[in-house]
Each structure stands twice: as C-alpha cells, then as structure tokens.
Design a protein around this nucleic acid. Structure first.
Lengths: 212, 212, 212, 212
DNA sequence: TATGAATGAGATTTCATTCAT
DNA sequence: TATGAATGAAATCTCATTCAT
C-alpha cells in the first residue's frame, strides 16, 4: 500500500471540508479555545492551506456560521409555504417536529457560538438578523395570521411576537449545553407544552364561538 | 492605639472589590478576551494581590458568577414566599416586574458568561443548577400549584415546566446582546405577552367553570 | 510547418520577463518584503515556472542585479573611450549628464538593493566590485589622467580617488529614497556643484600657468 | 555558586540593554532577518519582557535609530559652535577627524539600516530629516558662511550644498559594508582628499587676492 | 513546459502566572 | 500584605518551496 499522498488537490471540496472540521472544533471548545491547528488536523490539511481559503480565524468562524444557518431557514420557509395544512394542524405537526429537532441539530452549536462571539462581530449578527431572525419571524407571523383569518385563532399578542413559540427552543438549547449532565430535561415535552398552552390561549373558546 | 487610618482599605473588602471589577470586565469583553491585568487596573490592585485571593483566572470567574447569582434567587424566593397575593395577581404584578427587570440587570451578563464558559466548568454549572435552576423552578412551581389548589388555575403542563415563563426572558437577554443594535425589541411587552397567553390558557373558561 | 503562433511567447524570453518583473517588485518593497507570488503575478507566470528558471528567491535577486548593472557600465566605458572631447569638456558635457541621469534611473533601485542585501551575498558584491566598481573607477581614472597629461588638469588626489565625483550621486540616490517626501533636493544642481568645485580645484590657476 | 537568578529586576536599565542588543543584531543581519528571539537572547531577557517595553519589532527598530543618532548630531553641533578656530583650520582639524570617525562608528550601521528600512517608515525618516539632516546641514552651512564672511573663502555652491563634504563619508560607509572584503579603501584618505579639493576650490587664489 | 494547490518551518505577539523585593 | 518586572508556553499567521497533474 502506498504512503498517504501528501497532496490531494481537491480545490472545490477543501473549503467545505475545512468549514466542517471547524464546526466540530468550535462546537466542542468554543471559538477562543479552538486552535487553528486543531481544525487543520481534523480537516487533514496543513495550516497554510487553511489560510489559503480563509484570511483569518475570524473569517473561518463567520463561514461556519453562515454555512449552517441559511439551509435551516430555507427549510422552514419551504415547509410553511408549501404545506396545505390549516394553521393548527401545521403547528402541531410539522412545525412542532421541526422545533424539536432544532434542539438536537447543529443549530444548538450555532446558537451557542453566536451568543458567545456575536457581540464581537456586528457584521455577523447583522447578517444573522436579516437572514434568520427577520425571515424566520416573518414566516411564522404569516402562519399565525393565516390562522386568525381562518377563524382558527383569535387575535393575540402572538401575532406581534411569533418568536414566543421559540422560547422553549432557546431554553432547551441552553439547558443542553449547560445542565444536561446534571439534570435531565425532556426538551420535546417542554416545547410541546409551550405550543399546547399557546394554542389553548388563542383558540376560540366555546363561549366565543357561540357569541360569534 | 488610634483607629485604622481611613485611606487604608480594610483587607476584607479586597476580594469583593476585585470580583466587582472582574464582573465589569468580563461583562464587557467576555471571559477569554478579558485580561487579568485589566481587572487589576480596574480594582486598583496589583497582580500579585489578585493572585493572593484567587488561584487562577478561572477561579476568579467562578467567584464572579457565584457572587451575583445567589442574591437574585434569594430575592425571588423571598418575594414569592412572603407575598399575600393570590397567584394570578402575584404573577401579573411583582413577578412580571421582576422578570422584566432581569433583562436589564446583571443577570444578562451572567447568563451570557455562563452560556459561554459553562460547558468548560462542570462544577460551576452544577452549582448553578442546584442553587439557581432547581430553587428557582421549585419556587415557581409552588406558586403555580398554589393557584391550581385555589381553583385560580386549571391543571396544566406549566406545573411540570414552570420555566416556560422564563422563555421570553432568555429570548430578551440573547436579543439584547446580539441584535439590539440592528433591530429593536420591546422586551417588556414580549415578556408580558407570554405571561398573558399562558394565563389565558390556564385560567378556567366560563364553560369549565359551569361544568365544574 | 507554419511559423510558431504569435500568442505563444517564445521560451527564451521568459527569464527576462521574470527578471524584469522581479526588478519592479524588489524596487518597490525591497528584497525581504517582496513575495515570490507577486513577482509571478507581475510576470504573468506560475510559481512552478519561476522555480524552473531560478533555483531560489536569492538566485532571482542576483540575476536582477547582474542584468541591470552590466549594461550601464558598458555604456559609460563606451562613452568615455569613444569620445573625442578633451577631459573637461567631456566631464562637463556627457559625463555630467550621465551622472545626473543615474539618479533617476534604475541604478537607484540597484544601489538600494545592493546596500540592503549585499552583505549577505559576498559573491554578488564580488561580482559587482569587479565589474562595476573596478571598471568604472578605471575608466574615470583614465579620463582624469588624460587631462593631467594634457595639462588641462594639475595632479591631484582625484587621480587616486576618481570616485569622489560620484559622491553626490550616492547622496542623491539615498536622499531620494529617504527624504524626498519631506524635503526637496535639486540633485542635478548638487551633482553639478561637485563637478564644478572639483574642476576649479584641479585646473591650473593663472599663477601656476605662468610659473609653468 | 548559586544558579543564575531568574529575575533581575532592573527596570531602568532594561530598555537600554535591549536597544543595545537590538542594535548589534540589526547591524549584523538587517531588520527583516533579525529575529526578536535573537535580540532577547543577546540582551539576556525573555521575549515577554521585550514586548513589555517595545510594542512591536518596528517600535524597537525606531528606538534603535533614535537612540544612536541624536548624540552624534549634538556632538557635531557643540564642536562647531564652541570652537574658536577659523573655518579652514576647523575643517582640516576637528571636522575632518569627526567625519573620518563617523565611518567606523555606529553611524555606519545606522545609515545602512536607514537606507534599507527608511522607505517603510516615513515617520522615522521625517524624524531623521528634521533632527539630523536639517540640523547637520545648518551647522555646516553656518561654518562655511562664516568663512566667506571672513574672506577665508570665496562664495561658492558649497554654501548651498554643504552636504557635499559628506559625499565621501557616504561612499565610505557603503564601501565598507559591501566591498571591504574584496578591495581595500583608505577611507580616511578619501575623505581628506575631498576636503582638500573643496578647500582648494573655495580659497581665494593669488590672482583673486591681488584683484581684491 | 506549465500550473497552483499544498506544505510546514518559523516568525511575531500575547498573557496567565510567578516571585524577588 | 503588596508590588509589578519577568517568564515562557502557546497562538496566529506568512511565505519560500515542492510536486502531482
């Protein structure tokens, strides 16, 4: 068997391979504690090559965030917009599942990294704000509004603050990274509970139905 | 013998002064980016002295967290236990105010620091878990249960997951540190909205009351 | 067989093209701060090709020096030897002009590079010493001596140190690279002044002429 | 005998010790090729300490230049201004000696370093221009003018370009660093020759004296 | 010939921690 | 107690050079 070739020459794949490795390292140790060398080792690449594709460590970090964030939001948008289900059914079905999965996905890492490093990178948070927060909120808002229009829901503050649905997701993510080893939390149940409470609050009561 | 000269600080104050200075520095730059020297400068103390009281930078960090966390929880416990108000009135009154204040208090900093550094310090998160999470949850749970016992509230998942009330607090804290400069968020309204929705969900409806 | 296509450069030109590009880069940033990559870019050539012609960066440097130095000296030699003018007329005419031009020519760059890198490359300075210094001095010496023989000039230390004529050239070169932006210097006048003073010193005075 | 103490605690001397060491290293290898580590080793100091006193390597370099330049110029100024000698006697005596010594002094190194690094550090050359070039020229100019006023000298371009006297000094410095090992040059004689020629040119001739 | 992706040694700089005073 | 000069390990980043293609 031949020795490992020193050169591999795969220009197109390299940036992704490196970003992937960086994601893993960052998610384990956080940005500051991750050494560029470790990323290189994981990617099976020399330091020089990493710096060929990413001007600085910070650059690499931004690339990690951007790479893993956009697909998620797009998936959500697509799911909501293409679904024929009525609002409540959609929320209790695909939407709940998506939120529950978020907690165990890479989103967890990205959220933690953002919380940590965000304040130092205004351009990154601006990007995130526009592409994730704004679009995500808009899409959820549209869904709630559709329900109100349908008479599935009564008007409520949720129309203004659709992100309330994500409160337990954030709690879960933080919990998992901090307390999971000390105390279990059934994040699926937590997220479902919030959805349930909120739906109970915004669904017309019998009295209202009668009145209407 | 004369009294101690006033310009000479009493040594017992030193650790607190240092912790206080460290809090400020950590909250501005985060743990990794804070230099011990800066903490010393702010505290008006030499490096040697700091290392007399705190074995390592990490040690200092833990002290910061512990110092600012316990009083908060104690205040909450006291407020809940000593209040004569019925559950809903308490939630809509003092409790809401307390949650809203949390967002602008030092809690914000502590939460961010914990998220960042927590994973590296299991003992710290264990401590936090026991003293803040567990006690805080217990106290909120007792409050909800009291409301249920009173027939103010119907049974709900909130009894199992009282932390759902804090979802919007966490959202607010994260928002403030990341997105505030790009997009405003009325955190008071957000927190109030969640409380309102949840109360709507767990208060007996007319129908239920009649039935019951 | 058809003629070689014109868009394909003939390989014999490549080394010169590279040396030319290197000259430009070296003269802008100095040897150490010039990256081989930049030379390649300027020459429109890949790194591999550069290293085909020049074993190392140092090698390239030496080639630059040699390439631009020899023609200059040859021009001077030719000018002096083929000129029918008497010594003073030659000095005040073509020689002065040549010196003045030197300051703005590539010689400036070469001199700076030599001063910087020379000490590290004894073989290069040896080459330079033999081909530029020795020959240049000899040629100027011959000129002065001719003037003395003619009775245009009286004997003087200039016969031993003809390089004194170049003092202001060196001053000008250094000045231009260091101080020009802060303080202007009329280098043409400076060089002319030295020539004038020296000629005044070595031309026979009336008294001497009479005596003689 | 005890082991070498790790700490020496000589705050006041350190910057000078380090600058001195840096001077030696820079003068041997030039700025770019000198490693900070080498300077530290020579100074018997850790890298951290060097960076306590000098923010960057460049900073250290500037300090080297400034430290060795000012005393020289001050010495020249003092010598000229306090001397009772007539102009020619001063030039042939103390001034000649000073120029000759310059070649073998640290000035040689400083000049080489300046030529090499100057173009990259406009602030440094500005400083040098003001403190060395301007003041040096002014002081030489005053000397020449005094001689003209005295009728020791006739008016000449030397009044405008006193730096012509330094031409052979520059030649000598460059020669020593580049060609000395290949070909000897009697720099003392070279400098004296220039002075002699120039004086011959600017002293009144017999004819002129008679006429006048 | 010709390319340019890939290497890796080595440079500068930072900062938590120590300890002579 | 109290100081802050001094340490040195370790991190990021650069660039001359190589070699599979």
């Amino acid at each position: 068997m031949p020795t490992k070739p020193r050169f591999r020459r795969r220009k197109e794949d390299r940036p992704n391979e490196i970003t992937e490795a960086a994601f893993v390292e960052f998610s384990r140790k956080g940005y500051a504690a991750t050494r560029v060398t470790d990323v290189c080792k994981r990617a099976g690449v020399s330091k020089g090559l990493l710096y060929l594709y990413f001007k600085t460590k910070e650059d690499l970090f931004k690339s990690v965030i951007r790479n893993f964030v956009v697909p998620q939001v797009d998936a959500l948008k697509l799911a909501i917009e293409s679904s024929p289900l009525p609002a409540e059914a959609f929320l209790r079905g695909p939407f709940l599942k998506l939120m529950q999965e978020l907690v165990n996905s890479r989103a967890q890492t990205v959220i933690r990294l953002l919380i940590v490093e965000g304040p130092k990178h205004p351009d990154l948070t601006a990007y995130y704000c526009d592409h994730v927060i704004a679009e995500g909120s808009a899409v959820m808002q549209k869904l709630i509004n559709k329900g109100v229009a349908n008479r599935e829901f009564v008007p409520s503050a949720l129309q203004e603050f659709p992100q309330l649905l994500l409160g337990p997701v954030l709690i879960s993510v933080v919990w998992k990274s901090l307390f999971e080893r000390h105390r279990a939390l059934d994040t699926d149940a937590l997220i479902a509970a919030q959805l349930d409470l909120v739906l109970k609050a915004i669904k017309p009561t019998h009295a209202q139905e009668v009145t209407a």
